[in-house]
Design a binder for these strands. Structure first.
Lengths: 337, 337
DNA sequence: ATGAAAGCGCTAACAC
DNA sequence: GTGTTAGCGCTTTCAT
């Protein structure tokens, strides 16, 4: 039932186990007849090579790790993960690699230790870390550990680790321009504050710069990346005397939360206030009103990240290996703004 | 930088490599002093055991596969996957196993071959297949291949493979009772038709039985598990002369789609028609109106599935090993019904 | 073109 | 208690 080995195949085919190995690895100069005989035996015995033995002998790993970093509580339902992971898996599989997934966060530092152990123990060859908030110290640690890494959705401030990101600054600028073009003059952006996330910082900077360029008022309101945080932030903004006429949210989940708050408070969107998100996840179409947002090419980003990692691992890395690759984004106007 | 082996540690500690192995595996009767010396050497050399060598020697695998089955296009953004996978990973890690993830679907039959190859090649010890639509033939195949399997969200009609599901019938009954209690008398259920999914079949049966018990009208409208399908189904139902007064959807994504259709058509929910979903995903709170639904304990289901698989693999399987474990669900009334 | 020998890093036997 | 021997299943020399 379970195990046929190379030698079993060899015996069955009447050759040495070596020859079987050669057939399997498409070695040149195997006689077609031999090859055929071996293949028949392989099929007859339903032989499948033992991955561990192969890995051990070749000291070569064909597994990649896909690590998500964040607060478990916040991110466990984050819809962008599906898309990202699906693309990782598809792309890695296409290049002959398997994917293991890890969940990382400062609340569970043992996760990092486990990652290190797994890497040193040759359980995976390299990692893509998907996160908007990975602390720079962690990047330094990964680099120091020598783990081949590609950052996803987050650049390395030191420029040491390669990364794949989107044009957050440009996206925010497009959004601000859109709001201003529709007559908004008092914009508020809800984003996490000091969360180590250049992603948040860039969204903030893009927002402030664009608002300034247009000569409109710009203010910031703090909120985590969750729907609930968007809800609370909107309530705070609306609770004051001095209400903005557009509430931009750092992502779509927050946008959905803000829309709920508006609805609960009886605030008409987009008449009284415009609301926008960022990311363009599936349900941005299904909020009421539907959510104006910026589309990030998450699938493409994920494919790119995997390919950069694999190019590095397979030694065909380009010159700009540690650079940040920043993909363009597109404004998606809907009903909310 | 990269590799210290058992023998390096042994040399450093001045013992045989076996002793190091014994220390690592907490063998009885190692002198504390020796142990201490070995541990110091391990730390000094930053030694981490090679997973492949260990696996090869022990012919024991500590990786589990988490396979999602479905139309890639439909399911790639399915929010329930996050939750399920996070729970898989957390639970498996807690018991010392890693998780690889695979995406399966009939459009890519080579995925099944790859799964088989990986299993036979001892890349993973067992699999949890998450799917509402896995065809029974595939179950038979997995069973025939001898892959230790636990089905998630889908029972085996033959009762051969163990499964973890939720009480779809009971959930639908609760939902129907809820609608009827609020005066609805003409209920339509949108679910996939002949999709091999007992999950769909059970939802359908629960619906029909409950409606019949309450003596109200019940009809079926076909639609896949996506938001778009919910949208289209609602439009069809509303396009006819004979409109229902409640539209029950097979899941929340469809429910969100139905709500969008209602809004677009100017139909007031829940005044003119009630709408409900099933699953209770994050955004059920954020649709407008918020979506009445049935909460499935996905996290608990996932933990259970992993534990059943591991109990089986580790030989501490209970008597009812191949049974379906069906978890209770709870009605979550919101604004839409 | 094919076979024999060696060894990847580890653990399970048994000997000392 | 600790060391020696053997071998998990495979690929890489090197002979033939």
């Amino acid at each position: 039932m379970s195990r046929a080995t190379l030698r079993d195949v060899a015996a069955q085919a009447g050759v040495s186990h070596q020859t079987v190995s050669n057939v399997l690895n498409d070695h040149p100069s195997i006689r077609p007849a031999t090859r055929e005989r071996v293949m028949t035996a392989i099929r007859a015995l339903d032989y499948h090579p033992n991955a561990a033995a192969k890995a051990l002998r070749e000291s070569r790993v064909t597994t990649l790790c896909c690590a998500f970093y964040g607060h478990a509580a916040d991110d466990i339902t984050d819809p962008y993960r599906n898309l990202v992971q699906s693309a990782f898996i598809a792309e890695a599989n296409a290049r002959g690699y398997a994917i293991t997934t890890a969940m990382l966060g400062e609340e569970h530092p043992e996760g990092f230790e486990a990652l290190r152990t797994a890497f040193r123990g040759r359980s995976f060859a390299g990692v893509v870390v998907a996160s908007t908030t990975l602390p720079p110290e962690r990047m330094r640690t990964l680099a120091a550990w020598g783990v081949p890494t590609v950052l996803f959705d987050r650049a390395d401030p030191e420029g040491e680790l390669p990364s794949v990101t989107a044009d957050y600054v440009g996206g925010m600028a497009q959004l601000v321009t859109h709001h201003v073009a529709r007559g908004r003059r008092d914009l508020a952006l809800v984003v996490p504050g000091d969360d180590f996330g250049t992603s948040a910082v860039l969204r903030r900077e893009g927002f402030l710069a664009a608002a300034h360029a247009h000569g409109v008022r710009a203010r910031l309101e703090e909120g985590a990346w969750t729907a609930e945080a968007g809800e609370l932030a909107f309530r705070r903004l609306w609770g004051g005397e001095d209400r903005p006429d557009a509430v931009l949210c750092g992502n779509d989940r927050m946008g959905a939360g803000a829309l709920l708050a508006a609805r609960t408070l009886g605030v008409s969107v987009p008449v009284e206030v415009a609301v926008s998100g960022f990311d363009d996840f599936e349900f941005a179409r299904y909020t009421a009103p539907s959510l104006t947002t910026v589309h990030l090419p998450h699938g493409e980003m994920a494919r790119l990240a995997v390919n950069r990692l694999l190019d590095h691992l397979e030694g065909r890395a380009p010159a700009d290996e540690s650079a940040e690759v920043r993909l363009p984004v597109t404004l998606v106007p809907r009903e909310s703004a």
